[in-house]
Design a protein around this nucleic acid. Structure first.
Lengths: 130, 130
DNA sequence: TTTACTGCAAAGCATTTGCAGGGCG
DNA sequence: CGCCCTGCAAATGCTTTGCAGTAAA
């Protein structure tokens, strides 16, 4: 990685740390433009792709197809409404039976939950950045 | 719901049950076309939207922005590679410390995990299908 | 100079929407 | 007859890619 690329990525990492909430690529583009020197939208996408593969940010893809990024250190889960798309942050790191507790405390009707682990599979750890 | 609409939705529910694996809307469109009477792509999307709000199917949105649907009764989680996108099914319903176990048994480098509950928030339970 | 990165604009692709026609009550 | 649903095609919106120019080694 060159210093040039590293600079772009660090700007994004810092932004995500500062705002402390998930941002889409487009939002990152706007924020960087407002805060300091503009960074091209395509560059934002390319930097995010690298950061993702390095495990430096975590990504969640909304049902709209939009991906939102946040600091890797945040261990935050959500109650997501299928109708309006709102995501309520959940403090506990939940397990299966926690679902009932959440339903009553948030008055949220839970249909199902998804738990997904993200990282690199055996093959891709070798061929990283194909 | 009319009988006509109900028929479309039931065809999809049955298909997802039969194949017993996640399918995208486009795949559902192709499968239905091959198996029996064709169903328009827009209709597939509209039926899936209804099924989703009824809690009759569960949805996962891939990092590509593509949404995949499967039977609601399946309690299946995945190890998803950020590089190639492959999703390895995981049998256990995992908790936090399970992550280490998964890393060794699958030789998968886990960066983070997402746990998300899906359903209807308090407000949308009232205004269902806005 | 050689390689990697950036910005811009065009293309790609899943999904959504407008509208005209058809099914069903 | 009236309403909901369907199919088609166009539009939408996020993301990716081609390419020419630029920064860094």
């Amino acid at each position: 990685m060159t210093a040039q690329r590293n600079r772009s990525q660090q700007r994004i990492v810092k932004l995500l740390y500062d705002v402390n909430r998930p941002l889409s690529a487009q939002e990152i583009y706007v924020e960087l433009r407002q805060r300091e020197t503009p960074l091209g939208l395509a560059t934002v996408y390319r930097a995010l792709e690298s950061l993702k593969l390095e495990g430096a940010v975590q990504v969640r893809t909304l049902s709209t197809g939009e991906s939102i990024y946040e600091s890797i250190d945040r261990d935050q889960h959500y109650l997501t409404c299928l109708n309006c798309g709102a995501s309520l942050p959940v403090k506990d790191c939940p397990v299966h039976q926690l679902q009932e507790k959440l339903e009553t405390s948030y008055n949220f009707q839970v249909f199902y939950h998804n738990l997904e682990f993200f990282g690199l599979c055996e093959n891709c750890q070798a061929t990283h950045h194909i």
